[in-house]
């Protein structure tokens, strides 16, 4: 109980900090926080699959990028509506993940990783090669961001602070959805699949359907994160769909803690800070990140936040609940 209270205290405090940040941080840091929050949502979607369901996806970026492209396409060819763009991306990424998921969730472990990687790269080649629609390797930009219309209030998203609030709101909604999900009976199904897929199917569960649901939810959230990313950069580019970008979600999740709800968010923050610090000395900062990943996998598979939580629990001498 005490742990839970301490935990919610932390969450309330950091949410308050994030909500108040635009009032005391410089624009530079607001931009960085915006990026961190966007990537947090992306990595959390990956964590639903890997951390909770045990499915290591290397194709999450494919759906992330598809969401970004769909939103930009909807702005370029459809009505100039922010919610319209979000709706198009949401429906599109849900549909794409349904199709990809239908193929991938039948397989486990390595096969799942390779299959998702393959499908993600298929999407990448679509973005990269279908020049007339996607602008090819140049990416798809040249759109104007419509204003944020909240019916009672309208504001320009050209203001980084307004854009920040939009991203914060979307990321929070995503986090709340995931929180409810992992603590629901469905969430228990996911963890049971991670622990022992075969056993769960022997008690009569439709493992494939449960996995597919998780895949679609994760894909849709990734797609939404992709919209934020494309809007933030004012361009949707093929790199967003490349498997190396999926690797970022993997890294952030392992860094922060897989199977811990806010692990990927913490991981995303650490990722950006590290990038900042290390790239001041060398452009080849992946050397360090690779080394850190190796150390984490070997010594701290539960990541920074996961290991901290374990430490607190051991210190209090309470069993996990």
């Amino acid at each position: 109980m005490r742990i839970r209270r301490a935990g919610s205290l932390w969450i309330v405090a950091s949410t308050a900090f994030l909500a108040a940040a635009p009032f005391f941080l410089s624009t530079y840091w607001i931009l960085i926080l915006t990026e961190i929050l966007t990537m947090s949502l992306f990595a959390m979607s990956f964590n639903l699959l890997f951390g909770y369901t045990g499915l290591l996806s290397f194709g999450q970026a494919g759906i992330f990028g598809a969401g970004g492209y769909l939103a930009v396409l909807s702005l370029l060819h459809g009505p100039s509506s922010l919610w319209g763009a979000f709706a198009a991306a949401l429906a599109g990424s849900a549909l794409i993940s349904l199709v990809i998921g239908w193929f991938c969730v039948r397989r486990d472990e390595i096969y799942f990783a390779i299959l998702t990687l393959g499908f993600g790269m298929m999407l990448f080649t679509v973005a990269h090669n279908w020049r007339s629609l996607t602008g090819g390797s140049d990416g798809l930009g040249g759109f104007t961001l419509p204003p944020l219309d909240l019916f009672v209030w309208r504001g320009s998203l050209a203001d980084p602070r307004h854009f920040y609030f939009l991203v914060l709101a979307v990321a929070l909604i995503g986090a709340i959805l995931l929180y409810r999900m992992v603590n629901s009976p469905f969430g228990l199904m996911l963890r049971s699949i991670r622990e022992n897929t075969q056993r769960l199917s022997f008690v009569g569960a439709d493992v494939r359907a449960v996995r597919l649901c998780a895949f679609v939810v994760a894909g849709t959230l990734a797609g939404i994160a992709g919209v934020l990313f494309a809007f933030f950069n004012r361009i949707a580019s093929p790199e967003m769909l490349h498997w190396a970008f999926s690797g970022k979600a993997v890294l952030m999740t392992i860094l922060g803690g897989s199977g811990v709800l806010l692990g990927p968010a913490v991981g995303a923050a650490i990722f950006f800070v590290l990038e900042h610090v290390i790239t001041a000395y060398t452009t080849n900062w992946m050397v360090f990140l690779g080394a850190i990943l190796i150390v984490l996998v070997l010594a701290f598979p539960r990541g920074v936040l996961g290991s901290l939580l374990d430490l607190v629990q051991r210190y209090r001498g309470r069993p996990r609940s």
């Binding site: 629901s184 009976p185 009569g204 359907a209 449960v210």
Partner: peptide
Amino acid sequence: ENVLAPLAVMHGMSFAFWRSLS
């Protein structure tokens, strides 16, 4: 949780994602 998992399946709650388990 080891017992709750099959129970949730038995009660047809595999896909209940908004209700809290506890």
